[in-house]
Amino acid sequence: MTDVKHHISDDFLIGYAAGSLPAAFDLVVATHVSLSDDARARLQAFDAVGGCILDEMAEAELAEDSLAKTLSLINDNAAPETPSYAKQSKGKDPVFPAPLRDMIGGDLSAVKWRPIGMGCKQAIISEGKDATARLLFIPAGQAMPRHSHRGTEMTLVLQGAYRDETDRFGRGDIEIGDESMNHTPVAEAGEDCICLIATDARLKFEGLLPRIAQTFLRI
């Protein structure tokens, strides 16, 4: 288990538990929770709140053949579900936890990187109308390309580490930035740094042209 020092805040865990986060943020939360027992315990506590709410629901009326239909569903798919841990191939530890591997269709070697200058690379892996998730590769010792935040930005370190004005962030650590935050992260020497980043792409422009430009530049 990774020794995570920077944990996710409660509001994201509640959002995940309630199912109200944009898809890209769900991916970051699920990946972070896979790396941190602390986040997992906190998330499961918020799940428990959902359990209490479920238990208190006024009962809805069921269809007459409800149980029979469910039993026939079961008989159609009799095999117990295989958990993901049983499917994992033995051998080298993957860099990406299961939710990210599932999204990409493989581990690090399956990523389709695109160079963005200075040896840095990125790969957009989930693009929704409300948020985008990407992987960022920064060579060891290199500064992250300058970028301004729009809305909320979640950064989760998966390999290597980076430092910024606030602290050091290693594997499993998460940093949440907002528009007021202006930081210049630098990858630590020794190992290339790979991060999963989600941003909520709230459109600020009203006109059509800036929106097209924004789509084109994928900012």
Partner: peptide, 9 residues
């Protein structure tokens, strides 16, 4: 399919 945390090993 929403991403879910990895099952424990």
């Amino acid at each position: 399919a929403r991403p879910e945390p990895e099952d424990l090993p």
